[in-house]
Design a protein around this nucleic acid. Sequence first.
DNA 1: CCTCTGCTGAGAGGA
Length: 992
Amino acid sequence: RVPDHVILSGGLNNRYWVLEVEERPGHKTLTISCSKSLHPTETCLLKDGWEMTPVCCGDVVHMEGHSDSGAWLVDREQGFLVLLPDSLISGTSISSSIRCMRRAVLGDIFDGGSKQMLNGTIVHEVFQRAATAKDFSLETLSKLADQALHSPQYLGDMYTLGVSQEEMKRELHDYLPSLEHWAKEYLSSPAPKTISLKIRAPSRCQDSATVVTVTELADIEENVWSPRFGLKGKIDVTARVRIQRRSHRTLEEKTVPLELKTGKESNSIEHRSQVILYTLMSLERYNPEAGFLLYLKTGNLHPVVPTHMDRRELLKLRNTLVHYIHNCVDKEKKRSRLSRLPDILTNRQTCQYCPQKINCALYERAVDGNSADVSEDVVRDFLQLETGHLTPPHLSYFSHWLLLCCLEAATMEAKNGRKRVWLRTEKNGSCVGNVQLSGPVTIQSEGVFLHRFQRSSAVLQKGLANSGLASGDRIVVSDQEGRLVGLATGYLCEVSRTCVSCTLDRDLSKFSGVLFRLDGDEGVVGLSTHLTNLSRLMENGQDSDRLRELVVDLRPPEFISNLSSVLPREAKDTVANILKGLNKPQKQAMKKVLLSKDYTLIVGMPGTGKTTTICTLVRILHACGFSVLLTSYTHSAVDNILLKLKRFRVGFLRLGQGQKVHPDILPYTEESIRKKGVHTLSDLEQLYNKELVVATTCMGIKHPIFTRRRFDFCIVDEASQISQPICMGPLFYAKRFVLVGDHQQLPPIVQNQEARSLGMDESLFKRLELHSEAVVQLNVQYRMNRQIMSLSNSLMYEGRLECGSERAATALLTLPFLVSVQSELSSYSKTDPQHDLAWIQATLLPSNPVCFLDCSMAGCKPSDIGVIAPYRLQLKSISALLQSSAFTGVEVNTVDRYQGRDKSLIVFSFVKSTAEEGNLGELLKDWRRLNVAITRAKHKLLMVGSATTLRRYAPVEKLLNHLQQENMISLKHMLKLGATTKLFYICNIKSC
DNA sequence: CCTCTGCTGAGAGGA
């Protein structure tokens, strides 16, 4: 009954499964168990308001407090119930839910937030830099403020907002005197400031005047994950304070959270709640009794002393919030639909500046399309104001995709559930435990700290290299006990048998004695970019209106009739020159793009030179003086085009993290250009506007450049592999667009079965293809020889695919050592007639370009050989066989990863061979995947598999029929040994 | 039955 991915446990960090919920007026009883066998069970009585907790059967809960022989009580005075504790909710989300729960839920589903917060961010930064420097003198503060104003990150923000550096500087300098003042008043000063601390503990007297001195600013931006309370957050400042109570003689030293606020000194319930939540989530670290609010405008310090009631109410809010976030879809009779959210507030003061306004209205109309039964005028007016510009088809497109994204997000969440660091043991994941800091921490650059860890000698070695972690992986650092979870994140640099080095975002040198563990961080990636794009598509504005018309209403694309009006006279010769190298369909594609007023779709069948075509297209547009936004889903696809483009002296700016960019493209990245000297806002503006061509991934559209710059064209490569909401992201920023892809190859990956069946794997490319006037087909290919091409033609393209040249059509594999291998094989056959190797001799012949069996390579360069299999495990065992140095360079990969690439010789292992009539896998049922697999080889394609098994897959059956007709199958020699094994065994005899 | 790539964070403020 309990799904595999759920982890239950008893003890302090317990996790219980809810089996039964019994509701009575005034209380609620849960039957729970912390064992996967669901035996024994315990009970939990919820009352005094806790019975309102939206807990359901099948939820996981954490119990706080104590149980009386298996009976828990959570009421006004004692105990907490933490619903779905492994979903960590941020302190700010919870405090924002005080005013509007709906807004907090929407804030979690959609990205978003207003842009008026730059000032606060920089003031924080200055405070934190001063704290690190331990110097709050006006002089230093002013120097630090200047530094911050020129740092890359804030320049980008200023660019976005269109604020000048001078303006920012003036606002910032208003704060500096009060920062200095605060430090003088509180920071280990000779005359410490008196604060009134209200401690409500029964044994203490009320309202005792207390003296608080900050003795040390112990940490800045401390990251806290608290799986016990289901909370997370970043604590502005962790301070050591000395508390001296008048009534007591004692001096107390405490570590407490300090929350900085740049706004009005409101001491509001939201601000105080944030502090209370910080004290709660750092309970295991410091057990702070109190925290402080520091208002930077005035330099005043407000103590916040939480009571049980405060914590109780905030955790109840958290439970409600987590419930809504996790149940955004209802399942009713096997069909999912969007759930209702908490009601719309329609409070003018609160709603006026709400960043979720449009999503709030959109969601309401998505759940309940006609909204005819909205009783309140205010709500109706609000909905009309926010969504009045949208038609019913617009709203149904939005709600349809919102549902799909929620379904998919839920599946991803469930799959990643077990990957949460605090639930993981060293056995079941990529993890290195029991390591200690060794040597000093060195600062590599701002905010990048190089650490070295060593296996503690007490622990028996199995060697760090086998931990499942490799250099370049993202990691999370925690302590071994699980008290300090998620201390830092970063990347692994080197992994040796005994040592690990890594760069982290925080300096952990103060934890020198602590035993750490490093966990691979797969990263839970939500679908917030999808949803943000969808919400943007519904906005009332020029860019959105245009795209909505094309994408949702499917308005036919328009074209102009005459090239001469778009081609500048001075570019004509250059363009003509560039066109010379192209074949007919490629030229057609160029023309269509130039004539388009809306969009063009380029279908690039396998091997037809998509990359070359895109590269040429960019050169032509560039020559005409058009600006181009060049994107694709993956970094490697973007760089593929840029590597070609680079040779033609076309300048471009590459956006994106240096770590993901191809080394040869690095000089074109923003990062590297900035290092050469970008200090002012106008430097940055120049950088962003300099090049006509800008390249990035579809996800990279959060970059500041897109808040201001617009392009004449946007080109999206791999478009048939990108889901609609992601694909439309870059399209907002260009007047016209070009999608390049091939829907006969792999579609976007969708994990959730229901979402897929509802069409989530339909790309924008495919959706728009119904307008055939926008489509150009590239059907002349140069990759495969005639025989290999015939497979794909019979499987998918009905003969439309053509060879571009006789040379490509007849190209065969060259095997320099063929003669000697053949004679060696003959001699084997002679000495041991039992093992006739004639079949291998036949398959070896270059003149048999397609064989459904296998063979070896007699002198083929390892880098010309690709091995493909549909399953990861198979790849693993093939790789294991190829450990010998002779095979370094042979690339072993999945079908999916081979899309877009080719090799001279491809060995494709179908893997499957079962006698039983069992379940068939999904992978081989996909026509498009098979099509990709068979169109990667240029000269020779070897396929290994069990024909009997494979005939059960319709696509493979069609392929096998064709192979049989063409006499390309060697069926006679079924191998007892695994065919692939034998193949590589022979390879080994005659090393390549 | 097991295929895949994107991207950080949480918060910065105002009612």
